[in-house]
Design a protein around this nucleic acid. Structure first.
Lengths: 195, 195
DNA sequence: CTGGATTGCGCAATAA
DNA sequence: CTTATTGCGCAATCCA
């Protein structure tokens, strides 16, 4: 008992816990099934079209995306020695970005954030907080989805049982009706004028 | 049509995609609902009892876990200046860990893996591959769970519609039967043709 | 004890 | 400008 109320509450909590990323309208087969705002596949919708500098290419369904970077793709600037993590992230393109895309402003706004400045630490700390918050949210969302799937499964089971009951009852009634029909047909030769 | 086959296939694929971490048998309220091997809450089951050196305390349900570390807990050895990332992870306790927990072995096996050795790089690269693989797996698992929930929802809708149909049909038959019963009861004198 | 698998974290790029 | 999201590497830990 009381499982139904719990189900609905969790489902309600679950609904609306996904970030709004259905703006990109991808005509994928999966996303076509999304009717309301809930149930966005996430990794599919945004992760694929993000396409950051060091993304593995698509990686969509095959399980071959995990492999040493150096051998597959990438310009291997940071193939093995990734301890740097500081300034050699992907700056090679930045030098001639003004030639390629003159509309984008040159990284003037990155004026000497030399990793020691208080502003840099402030930004980093703020971003760290945001990252923790976002991951917390994601964890909760995943949990809710799992619980929702479990409860939908339970509800499905009950619905199927109910359908079985209804079908059986229906068959009984149909049988009874056919019996009566036979009775009336063979017996009441005079009285059954209505049939 | 054909949605049912797709549903079952995805559900089958979904089932059994969770890592086996139900060995630790935690009598949590959530994990009690898990019947088979599927639907492990993940962050709940293992993340809470991992208890690594710098874990936020429990953080289970409330949404207050994201906050600057320094003000909440932790020994603040690496509160703000986390650029180190190298050797000052949580070593303060390690100094007197031999006193507190003499059963744990001292870090003798960490013999000068001075971050330049080829073995260190080898280990790191292998771990990086493993990490990518594991995260890929997690992403697929999450996707499958979401798709499964969606399809269970669809199936639920159809089942409810079916129940509505069956109920209506059942009511009709019941009504017909009651009418016939009335007909038979009042003797079927003569006027039944008009009804 | 050893090596892969998970996980939390911070960083940087990027999306919103 | 801000915050939010994401992929990545690192280190600790788990686990078989």
């Amino acid at each position: 008992m009381m499982s139904d109320s719990r189900v609905s509450s969790v489902i309600q909590e679950w609904a609306g816990s996904y970030p709004g990323q259905n703006h990109t309208l991808n005509p994928t087969s999966v996303s076509n099934q999304m009717s309301q705002m809930d149930m966005m596949p996430y990794g599919q919708a945004q992760g694929l079209m993000r396409g950051s500098a060091d993304d593995r290419v698509s990686e969509q369904m095959m399980g071959l995306s995990y492999l040493p970077y150096s051998s597959s793709c990438l310009s291997n600037t940071s193939s093995a020695g990734n301890t740097d993590h500081h300034q050699s992230h992907g700056n090679t393109q930045q030098d001639f970005s003004s030639f390629l895309m003159p509309t984008l402003r040159t990284p003037v706004n990155k004026r000497s954030i030399s990793k020691d400045s208080a502003e840099y630490r402030l930004r980093r700390e703020r971003n760290n907080v945001a990252v923790r918050k976002s991951r917390d949210k994601a964890r909760r969302r995943i949990l809710l989805t799992q619980q929702r799937a479990l409860q939908l499964q339970e509800e499905n089971q009950k619905l199927k049982i109910r359908i079985g009951q209804l079908t059986q009852e229906l068959d009984s009634l149909k049988h009874i009706l056919s019996q009566r029909h036979l009775q009336g047909a063979e017996g009441g030769a005079a009285g059954e004028a209505g049939i």
